[in-house]
Design a protein around this nucleic acid. Structure first.
Lengths: 208, 208
DNA sequence: CCACTAATTGACCGGCCGGTCAGTCAGTGA
DNA sequence: TCACTGACTGACCGGCCGGTCAATTAGTGG
């Protein structure tokens, strides 16, 4: 390997952050000790304090780095999309689902953050939802999606349906009748997209 | 108050369980110390060990008690419902949503359990989903709900949409454009119920 | 009333916790 | 070459951790 024999602050910081991400995501902030972090990083406990100050400082750095990656990827995809299109929403859901599928650690990290009431990422979070809701609103105004639902709620609903799926999947994968990731996604998309189709008042089946 | 001046094991156990439930739900197992639990319960640390053995034993007892209450309430409602009816599903969603709304601590407890990979309640959990999925299947067979979706997934989707809403509500309540609990529920029900309506093949809009 | 059980207590244990600090040493610019 | 910066180390700190145990005491059945 390319183990640097000399001192390299950036390399050390990266090793520490990587180990901290894995351990914190796996067991939570309080269940991980600085000694364990040091051992996993291959550095001394003192060096972690040198680079990150306190255990909380390291935790903040871990969250910041992970969320920054998530935020930039999501924002680029949202901003890169073209004009209003109902299929755009479907693709957005699939993309978000695939991202969580490939980054299960991110789901756990966000869950820890929610439980501890972390609000440091709220602004970026809100920005992503704002962008997504704007897309939905465009499609509504173009008559491609029903207009009697709150665009922010539309985004919120599919975020919830996706993230919760991966949050509880380890426990529920043995439920009777439960399908694979793709089968769940397919069923969700059927209900979600058909439920969002523009209402056709004349086809009302039982006079409401 | 009816504070017993004499010894009362049941009363002590209840006080300990109550304090442990609040603290564990609020901050998580690892972030709470036995000393803090003792102070909150108004008993000594030794007494907690006397009644529950270890800290893990107390945690297990807390989870068991909370989940038992949840399970019995949900099961009674599911079994008490009458024959297949599309409106039954809507009412089931509303009931589940209201339950979480009135018991936010339960949402947090389940989230902690999921993060730590707890599987002790999986059997009861699966039983509830099995009952709900059976109701959905009945409605499908009666032609009241679309039949091309997995009934277990239908139940899973609304559980996810409801529980995640309350899990992240503290952080997201200030999102631009987000509505109240009831407004979110209304919008979800619109999309969910319309998306589950029986398909009308002749009204296909673009030939699929 | 007395023996017995069990609820309850407080002192105490070894160990691990996060954090500090003086000191060493590798790189670097003058 | 040499002074200086900062990456890095290991010994050490006070404190809190979960858990134990002998002793006390309040109920309880005989």
């Amino acid at each position: 390997m390319n183990e640097p024999m000399t001192r390299d602050a950036e390399h050390s910081r990266a090793r520490i952050l990587e180990a901290a991400f894995e351990l914190f995501v796996d067991r939570g902030f309080d269940a991980v000790s600085m000694r364990e972090l040091a051992a996993r990083s291959g550095v001394t406990k003192s060096l972690i304090h040198h680079h990150f100050g306190t255990k909380e400082g390291l935790w903040d750095a871990v969250k910041e780095a992970a969320f920054a990656r998530y935020y930039e990827g999501q924002r680029d995809e949202l901003e890169g999309a073209s004009g209003p299109d109902a299929e755009l929403l479907r693709k957005g859901v699939v993309r978000y689902f695939r991202f969580l599928q490939e980054n299960p650690q991110v789901v756990r990290l966000f869950t820890w953050m929610h439980l501890e009431g972390d609000v440091t990422c709220n602004e970026m979070d809100a920005e992503l939802v704002r962008l997504g809701a704007g897309r939905v609103r465009e499609a509504q105004e173009a008559g491609l999606l029903r207009s009697d639902v709150n665009p922010t709620h539309v985004v919120t609903i599919f975020i919830h349906a996706c993230s919760q799926w991966f949050e509880v999947r380890p426990q529920h994968k043995n439920w009777e009748g439960i399908g694979s990731d793709d089968e769940y996604l397919d069923d969700f998309l059927k209900i979600f997209m058909d439920g969002l189709a523009p209402r056709a008042p004349e086809t009302d089946t039982d006079g409401n």
